[in-house]
Write a protein that binds this DNA or RNA. Structure first.
Lengths: 199, 199
DNA sequence: ACCTTTACTTAACGGTGTTAGATTATTTAC
DNA sequence: GTAAATAATCTAACACCGTTAAGTAAAGGT
């Protein structure tokens, strides 16, 4: 029956509407303001209807979380493809990470627990691993290492991640320094770590 | 009247009891579980009584926040006093910062917004500035700079802070790496930045 | 002993996530 | 076309939250 398909399509549409409504509310009023009743208001339904599409509020957050990882991965991949030299690629990829954090501030908060309860999501999910995998490959190239599970590689990845994520978190929680100085710190740190990869 | 004093003393005592109860609940069940009614349960009162001692929940969080900064400052100062060389002092101070973050995980979360809405507190408060001031002084010494408002100094402080706070945040949100590797990353990064101070 | 102040409680308001039950609309079967 | 079955949706409620207003009980001062 074609009507079955139409109904399934409508259901899928409302599912997306719920996610869109949630995201819209968060962008406009922040995570604290997100409630099931507000989502229902936006999609012009009552709250319990949402539970036909999502098990609970957490499930909605997980979906948005996944969306965040997809965008981040795409951004990082795109940044990589704009350069040929692995060193340049690496720098561009971390700058893409930085830009994502502010372009999609709310998603970043959800994904990495900045100023909010971060959405638990099994780390084995491929979406969650994708950004680390992309960056890890390039680090491996620059370091000229064979084993992708090498401890030295892992260490360098965490060093990058720490400084970038730390700087981002500090800026989201309290923006106490000019964009200029932030960019300087970020680029200096990244360049310094890249240099250290080749020792 | 001495009775006036006794009553004042009792009031002060309940104030402290409220803070202690709140802290205890948070340590046992996390920030999400903290509620006014639960605090009241612990101190064996009803919830509205708390509003005789604190304007609202936020005020309780601010007090705990302040407590956190006092402990952190004391820890950093103590670490400093265990060394004579500024370079060694600096390393010890950041290690003290790191240790505080895990010894007082809940306070750290409150202070810096890791995995929770961080408690807003005007940054001009001396307690909040103390840790940065302590560390800044030593950085200044190592860099051999006169102006304590120097941009280069500020940049180096933020570089330190970013990498340490970033590594801490990542570990609190998802502990994905052994303590061993963490220590290695931390010490390497700190040593690297200290080296860069003297160029 | 009376009055006033303080300490404290109960009840309530509007909000939250979530569930059960009733109601309405739509599809299916005859 | 009508009756039964199914799906879609709503209302009402539960238990919790932070917070406030009003009432009650105890203590203090005179």
């Amino acid at each position: 029956m074609a009507s079955k398909d139409r109904i399934l399509r409508l259901k899928e549409e409302t599912r997306i509407n719920i996610l869109d409504a949630a995201f819209q509310i968060v962008k406009e009023e922040g995570w604290q303001a997100l409630s099931m009743r507000k989502i229902a208001d936006v999609i012009e339904y009552t709250a319990p209807i949402i539970y036909e599409y999502f098990a609970n509020k957490e499930a909605i957050l997980q979906e948005l979380n996944k969306k965040g990882y997809l965008i981040l991965s795409a951004d990082i991949e795109a940044a990589k493809n704009e350069h040929r030299l692995p060193e340049k690629q690496l720098e561009a990829m971390w700058l893409a990470y930085w830009n994502f954090a502010f372009a999609q501030k709310e998603l970043y908060q959800l994904m990495f627990g900045v100023e909010m309860n971060c959405c638990v999501m099994k780390q084995e999910y491929p979406e969650v691993q994708a950004p680390a995998k992309l960056i890890g490959e390039v680090i491996q190239q620059v370091m000229n290492i064979e084993d992708p599970e090498d401890d030295a590689l892992c260490m360098k990845y965490y060093t990058f991640w720490s400084v970038v994520h730390g700087l981002i978190s500090i800026n989201i929680v309290r923006k106490g320094v000019t964009d200029d100085i932030n960019q300087q710190i970020l680029r200096d740190a990244i360049k310094g770590i890249i240099r250290s990869l080749k020792d």
